[in-house]
Amino acid sequence: MNIFRFLGDMTHLISILILLLKIYATKSCSGISLKTQELYALVFLTRYLDLFTDFISVYNTVMKLVFIASSLAIVWCMRNHPLVRRSYDKQLDTFRHYFLLLASFLLALLLHEKFAFQEVLWAFSIYLEAVAILPQLVLLQRSGNVDNLTGQYVFFLGAYRALYIFNWIYRYFIDPHFTRWIACVSGLVQTALYADFFYYYFISWKNNAKLQLPA
């Protein structure tokens, strides 16, 4: 494992910890899209079916279990916790996420490494992860004001994707057998979706001002 991949995993972990901290400390999930969180839970559940079939390392197994457990915990809190669920911006979280599910599934049926149950679901999880942030970005844009922890959450999530691209560039030169086109192309699309957010994030950081997205 190279440094970019490791830092990518760590920023991913940090983003989830920030989200858990926000929900735990403020008992609020305002600004957070339940649709995006549900899509992420589904991404992890479909991708990590290999927990039952392949053992890669203790690190790998532990991280997979952490991602599954934390995503399910977040969804549970947003749906069921008596205080947290009241702060959910349901009227702003209106992205038609079923289209993302359908499109990802159809694409996975067409484009996969092998036509097998686990492989098609793996491709599905990759495609779905690439677009799962869209309901979240739309919610932020609609609410305009982004609270500090929510802004940091999305920033670290974007940083994780950017670091994975550096990881692939590194692997491409070091390990010529590494050719995961589905993951790499989807990863590029996914990272591009953050470009607009990053732009406004850095402007607010430079001006030392609160993060605001244009309507």
Partner: peptide, 10 residues
């Protein structure tokens, strides 16, 4: 075959 390499990324 390359597709049999386990998927080591998260």
């Amino acid at each position: 075959a390359k597709e049999d390499v386990p998927k080591d990324e998260l």
